[in-house]
Structures are given as structure tokens and as C-alpha cells.
Design a protein around this nucleic acid. Structure first.
Lengths: 377, 377
DNA sequence: TGTACTTCGTTAGGAAGTTAACTAACGAAG
DNA sequence: CTTCGTTAGTTAACTTCCTAACGAAGTACA
């Protein structure tokens, strides 16, 4: 394999901007990268030489000479994103401009198959520059290898099963799934254009993804946003129990309360949160009351987050968090207890985790190119 | 007044490094600023010409030629820090390397006098480059002027009284007092060398200063760390009330509980938190039990912070938070509920707020010099 | 169709910073 | 008292990127 020469600094900057934009003219690249026209010309020539960029057409801005448009070249390669979700494993392969190149999905048990399927669908020859794996667990460095691993036994076995299917020599990054979903909302969802916000996911468990200045906040142990550890119950005469909050605002609690509240005359009892929300949307009792109460609970969770972070925006996600029916109740409770904060529902839903993982992988891949880290062959 | 020419970028970088170090040789400046020897030579010459740096001696490193030592010059000027505390107003004037030039302290009511006293003690002729005022309130931009102001009526009047004593034309920055104290712990206290931690202050009120990557986290409304808004009390069957937490873990609650618990045979009842802690240190009941319970309460507060932020280190401060007696109880409760997190007591105490405000002012002042923002005359 | 106007891209000269090599100053060992 | 190793500071050649000016390639309009 030919020695890939390291890029000059300006060429790296131009490449990063080009990857972000997908395609752009030289004047656009100059203004986005903050470089002068001559420098961009030199950088583009260098990138074309390395087949990292290609001339992909021309664009006319109405009047004046039409500009050459450039896009990513075949040597720029691709990245892989893996979401080891509780039920399904989703895998996506992307180019460095974010375009989807391959997609696969399997039940959680056959996670490695999804990875292999997506890898096969990626264009051969071009280097795989980064892999991001999203897991529903806190991550910590392994004692012996130093590589990141799931901190508890929750996600360990699946992660190991997937690891063997990953091509060697490619840097693998592990990330919490809620953090990934938050990134998806940041780039393609309800938090577009923001720099700081919180993504509150309520499903079986509860979790918070924190984005500050466009960066995910991971915390000292990668445990930032582990809201299950909020003290609960908490009062003058009650001692908080460990992890008690999850059993109270999680989807399990919602369904348990429904089972208790359901009377013989209330019709068939809903077995899923979705069904419960559907009944509540029709104004049927006791579904409506249960959802209203759930909204207040979520509002209290939101108030706890706001009291510490004041994020300005909270995006609600997860199986029992994303329903827009909750918004009025959440907003009311949040306003009652805390600071005025915008609250909206997730726009991406279940795919958020892979999408965000892909965003992270793309960012890592671009860094891989611009900083000249070479992939072993 | 002579036109102060803007500094070149490298001279600005060298000045910033020199201000941080206080004094340094050229090789030190080169390595700290990440510049080469020739560039540093040119920058130092430029700074000397502008009287922003002066040759202040020589330093021998054992073997080899001895190097010239440089320090800040007379034109570098000074900054002012004002702490509008609940009882006293403290003012400090500092040079841009952080050395104390003037200090004053008055009761809160005569705040403007302290400012005037400190201003008089500053070296005349050299420019005042920045002013930072610390207040015990959330800050927000004023509707008409756009300048920052205290958000509620709490700190407004004192701030206005001080404002008239401030020299016109100097940029004034308003900052929350807990954030200032956190910065003091970061630079000169218990969090030295850290990049991320939380400073938990418990006194009459409760507050949290958040430092992430060396930067204070202010939040969208400047309300990050306003823990009084945490939902409390919180349980299946109890509705949180607004701002109820402060009345429960604040120093008022501690003394109120002491008043209730004190029996006739327990000796004279302590009227201040200090006295209560002193009795507890001797193992006297019921002081010991009250302090132990307070420690658990603080531990729950710490757990709430850790669940959201995972800061890795919490520094406890404030009149009823800084006592080291609390540490074992806080650590135990935090470990029971949440993630392992280091907990230590404040090393600076009451002066933290001015000290941190001075740090902020110095940083602003250095930026003022290096970015060439000119002070009106 | 030619002329004016606008935008794209290149060329030329200059500013700022780097590396490399050299000179200067200092201490320690013979 | 000289010599050697080490560290400080300067000089010179080179790199990188910028600004300014100019030629090239389009559109708009008489």
C-alpha cells in the first residue's frame, strides 16, 4: 500500500469543511474554513492528488463565472456505527460527509451478523476510518488493554460478540446510547442549531444526554446523565434508596400503575405504553389521568436537570417520553418548580442512537484523515 | 494619550503566558506558549517596547548560560474584583499576574466606599482593564442597555450603588458569587490541577458552581447550579414545592432543628452553626446527631449533582458545608446512592468569592490587552 | 454581437513563524 | 587558566498563508 503522505494543515481544514458540507465550491470552502482563495486552491489540489476530493460539477451563482464544485473522493473512506439496542442491533455505514452507504438490522442476539452484513455492503478498497459502538451502559477503560468497555455486566457480552466481527486495526469508540441519541437531535433533530441542551430519555430506564457547546458531556466516569442515581424518595422523614427513581418514572412504573388503576368497566387494559397513550389521546379515563401524572413526574425529572444545568432546551425521548401529549404537563410542572426552559419532543425516535453514533463516527473519521492517523493494513 | 498599537498575535500569546506565570525566562515562555525561540525574542522585544513587559533579573539553571527573566511591565495595568457579599463587601485590585495591589472591606451598606478605597490604592497612570462584580444572584442582560444585571431584586440595589463608584469606560462583568468561589478553588484551592469539578456551597442558601474543562458553566439563563430548584420533597405521594429544598438543607434548617432537639439538660443551645459544629466535634449530643444528619442531607444533594454531572470531584463550601466533620457522612451517603466521587472541603473559605472574581478579572484584563480592546480615556 | 458587470481562480509580493545552525555566556573539570 | 559541555539568544533560509491585483469565464443588456 502506498504511503499516504500527511496532509498540510490547510488541506486538513479544507477537508474537514468539505466533509461537513458534503459538496462545496472553492469560495464556499474558503469562507467556511476561514482561509484565503489561494490557500484553498492549493489545498484542493493537494486533496485531489490524494483522491480525497473530486471535482463533481459546476455551480453558477446567477451572475459571474461559475465555480467548480468539489465533493469527497474515493480515498476518503467510510465509517461504521453500531447501536446495540435492547431489542435490535442496528448498523450503519456512512461516508465522511454523512451519506448512508450501508444499513443492517438484526435482533440483538445476532448482532455480529448485522455488522458483517453492513461491512460487506461498504465500497471495497476505501479505508474504514472509525467505528462507534453505542451501548446502554456507562463505559470505562479496561484494566489491561486500556480500551473502553461497558462498565457493568449489562452490555458486556453483546459488546464482546460484536467486537470479533469488527475488522482489526480500525479505531473503535464506545459511547453511551443516550449520548448518541442526543447528538442525533443536535445535528438532525429537535435541537438543530443549538449549542447546549439536554436530551431526556424515559423508557424502561431513564437517562440524560448532555450537550454543551456542541460537545457531549461525559463526566469523570462517563456517568454524567445517569439520572437513575438521583436521590429518591427524598423528604424530611424519608431516606432515598439506591436507583429507586427508575422504578418510579420508568415505563415499568407507568404500566404497573395502569394495572392497578384499571377497573372492570374501563375496557381492555393496555399492555404497552403506546396503547396507553393512544387511549389517553382519546380522552379515555383512567388513561388520561395516568398520562397526566406521568407528565408531572417527567416534569420533576426535568426540573432536577434544569436546577443543575439550566440547559435552555430539553428534548424528550424514549418510549414513554417522546409522546407530545406529555408536553403541556411537563412544561407546567417545570415552570412551577424551576426556570423557564423550552421543552420539545424528540424528532428522530428509535433511530436516534444509530444516527448519532454515525455522526460521532464521521467526526472521528474526519479527524483520522486530517490528523494523518494511518490505518494499519 | 499615545495610540497603543495592537499587539501581534505571537506577542499577545507571550503576554498571556507571562501574565499567567508572573515571571519567566524566554525559553520558558517559548515552551509555555508553544512558540519558537526567535518568535519569542521578537515578541518580548515588542512587549518591552510597549512597556507591557520588563527585564526583571536573570536566572541560572545550574549549568549553561543564564537566562534573562521578564515580568509584567508598568503599562500592563490592573483589574478590580468586587464581592457584594451578604454581610460584607470585599474589593481587591490585582495586577494581571494576579498579585494583590489593593484591598478593602466594608459592611454591605457602604459598598461604594470599599470600591473607592481600593481604586485610590491602585497605581495611578496604569490603565484599569477590567472589573468583575460578584453577586449572590442569577445574572441576566438588562432589557435596555444589554449589560448584565442581577436577575432578581435580591442584589439589584447594592449593584447599582456600587456601579456609580466604578470608573466609566472600563468593561464590567457580573458573575454569580458561587461561580467565583468555584474558580478560586480551581486555581488556588482544593481543586487545583483539576479541569472538571463541582463546588457545592451550603449556607443560608444552597448553590453549585460547575467547572468543566477549566471553564465555568453558566447555563442558558445564567442559572446553572441553582440547586434550590431541585424538586423537593419528592415521593410517590408527595408533590415537590418550589424552592423547598433550601429551607431543608440550608443553615436555617440546621439551627431550627437544633432549637427543636435541644433539651434542658443539654447545656446552652448554640446560636450559630459554628458553635453547633464545635459542640459536635467534642462528641456532645444532640449536636453530634444533628451534624450527622446534616451530613447525610448534604450527601443527598451531592448525589443529585453527581447523578447529573459526574464531576469526579466535589468541593464543599459555605458556612455549614465547609466543615471537615461532614466529610465522612457525605461520602458515605454519596457512595450509597451514586457513583464514587471524591469529596473534599473548601480550602479558601469566605475569601473565595473575591479571589475567584479577581481571577476572572485578570483573565478578562489579559484578554483586553492581547486582543487590543482599548480603554476609552 | 459587443460591452459592462460580476464572480472565479491564479499570480506575485509580503508578513509571520519555523527549523537549523551559529555565536555568546556560564559552570565544572582537569 | 584553559577546555568542554550546556544553555541562551541571534541570524538565515525556508514554509505557509495572506492581501492585492489581474486574467478568465460566465451573465445581462443594449
Amino acid at each position: 500500500m502506498a504511503e499516504a503522505p500527511r496532509l498540510t494543515e490547510s488541506a486538513g481544514a479544507v477537508f474537514a469543511v468539505l466533509a461537513q458540507a458534503g459538496s462545496a465550491t472553492r469560495p464556499q470552502l474558503a469562507s467556511l474554513a476561514g482561509l484565503s482563495k489561494p490557500t484553498v486552491s492549493a489545498a484542493v489540489a493537494e486533496l485531489e492528488g490524494a483522491r480525497l476530493a473530486t471535482h463533481s460539477g459546476t455551480a453558477s451563482s446567477g451572475t459571474g463565472r461559475s465555480a467548480a464544485v468539489y465533493g469527497l473522493g474515493p480515498a476518503s473512506g467510510s465509517v461504521l456505527a453500531v447501536d446495540l439496542g435492547p431489542a435490535r442491533t442496528r448498523v450503519r455505514g456512512c461516508a465522511l460527509d454523512g451519506t448512508l452507504l450501508a444499513e443492517a438490522s438484526t435482533p440483538r442476539a445476532r448482532a455480529a451478523d448485522a455488522v458483517r452484513e453492513a461491512l460487506d455492503a461498504l465500497p471495497p478498497g476505501a479505508p474504514l476510518r472509525a467505528i462507534v459502538v453505542a451501548v446502554g451502559d456507562v463505559t470505562e477503560p479496561d484494566r489491561t488493554s486500556g480500551a473502553m468497555r461497558p462498565a457493568t455486566a449489562k452490555a458486556g457480552p453483546v459488546f464482546d460478540a460484536v467486537s470479533v466481527a469488527l475488522p482489526p486495526g480500525v479505531p473503535v469508540h464506545l459511547e453511551n446510547n443516550v449520548n448518541c441519541a442526543a447528538l442525533a437531535e443536535l445535528h438532525e433533530g429537535a435541537a438543530r442549531g443549538r449549542r447546549t441542551f439536554g436530551y431526556l430519555r424515559i423508557g424502561v430506564g431513564i437517562g440524560l444526554g448532555i450537550v454543551i457547546g456542541g460537545q457531549v458531556l461525559r463526566g469523570a466516569n462517563g456517568a454524567a446523565g445517569e439520572l437513575a442515581r438521583l436521590p429518591y424518595p427524598w423528604d424530611d422523614d424519608r431516606e432515598p434508596r439506591q436507583e429507586a427513581l427508575e422504578a418510579y418514572v420508568g415505563s415499568g412504573a407507568l404500566l404497573r400503575r395502569a394495572a392497578q388503576a384499571w377497573g372492570a368497566s374501563d375496557g381492555p387494559r393496555p399492555r404497552t405504553a403506546d396503547r396507553l397513550f393512544a387511549l389517553a389521546a382519546q380522552g379515555r379515563e383512567p388513561a388520561r389521568a395516568l398520562v397526566a401524572r406521568h407528565a408531572a413526574d417527567v416534569g420533576r425529572l426535568a426540573a432536577a436537570v434544569t436546577a443543575v444545568l439550566d440547559p435552555g432546551l430539553l428534548v424528550l425521548g424514549g418510549s414513554t417520553g417522546a409522546d407530545p401529549q406529555l408536553l403541556p404537563g411537563v412544561r407546567a410542572e417545570l415552570e412551577r418548580l424551576s426556570w423557564p426552559t423550552e421543552v420539545v419532543s424528540s424528532q428522530i425516535g428509535d433511530l436516534g442512537t444509530v444516527v448519532g453514533a454515525a455522526r460521532l463516527a464521521v467526526a472521528q473519521g474526519v479527524q483520522n484523515v486530517t490528523e494523518g492517523a494511518q490505518v494499519k493494513d
